[in-house]
Design a protein around this nucleic acid. Structure first.
Lengths: 161, 161
DNA sequence: GTGCGTGCAAATCTTTTGCAGGACA
DNA sequence: TGTCCTGCAAAAGATTTGCACGCAC
């Protein structure tokens, strides 16, 4: 299981480097997949990677415009669609809406989200096979995939309490 | 763990009775909670209970109008809000949108949804405490609640294959 | 040079709000 | 009878589509 500490507000240098690294990975994956490397896409990807919590299309537009003033909302939607399709971004489902996204690593992973500050952290290694088998046996469904999201308080908000 | 077989198309008598039973339970819970028993609410609740899959507000309006022609969309939204608040209905989060609802029993439960026909079945008894603990330990988050949904093929669609 | 990618504007959809009239207890 | 509910109409948002132009390859 991998887990990164939720970044401090304002973006500590370490977090910056991490965000940079992630966006490089995503941009690389994009071109690997045959998508061209444009200024608009870079702006969206960077904005997404810098966000320490789920970002809505509107957030990404605002943030992305700092890097590329002409960025349009439509491009944000289209880029998210591509990223999601490639498994590079994942939609976060929350009580109050399901339109925020977070970067996702390759492979199977889920997010744990802070109900106070919304910081979203990815985690791998959910071992729920037993549950899947049990459900399969009782319902007759052939379970193919699952969606799991945890909600709680991040270390920071936990302390503030 | 409880599990009901997904109803056959068209609504077999057994399924009808079950739907009836569920809607009675929901309507009863509503009045228990101090909400009055109106024709519009009955229509929405019945529509929700009859649906064998997640129903969107628009679905419920259409279905509900069979029983109460004057039913308005707004009432559907408001009723869903109440039901959700009381834990009597639950929003289903799916790849292609998160605006469908299904009746929910009291207590903790999740849904397994058919990717082909959308039939949604509730199941209880998700034992993922180990996962929660592990995530908590690795991320420092205090995990308070979780959200889990399974996707696959229901027995019916499995057979059709 | 070509075609993919972009941004604007407009069209759609979904959901929420404000109100006046109507139904339930 | 007094509230709680309801439905309509309109407002507010969110998302998608059509199109002509511009940039990446």
């Amino acid at each position: 299981m991998t887990a990164e500490a939720p970044a401090t507000r304002g973006g500590a240098p370490a977090a910056r480097g991490e965000a940079r690294q992630r966006s490089d990975r995503v941009l690389h994956a994009l071109s690997e997949a045959g998508f061209s490397d444009t200024r608009a896409r870079r702006a969206v990807v960077t904005a997404l990677c810098e966000a320490r919590r789920g970002a809505t299309p509107a957030d990404l537009l605002a943030r992305g415009r700092r890097r590329h003033a002409a960025l349009g909302q439509v491009t944000v939607y289209r880029t998210l669609e591509i990223l999601e399709g490639l498994g590079l971004a994942r939609k976060l489902h929350q009580e109050d809406g399901c339109s925020s996204y977070a970067v996702a690593s390759r492979g199977h992973a889920h997010h744990v989200i802070c109900r106070s500050c919304r910081a979203a952290v990815e985690f791998e290694g959910c071992r729920i096979d037993d549950v899947l088998k049990e459900v399969s046996a009782k319902t007759g469904y052939k379970v193919e995939s699952h969606f799991l999201e945890l909600l709680g308080l991040c270390p920071h908000c936990r302390g503030k309490k």
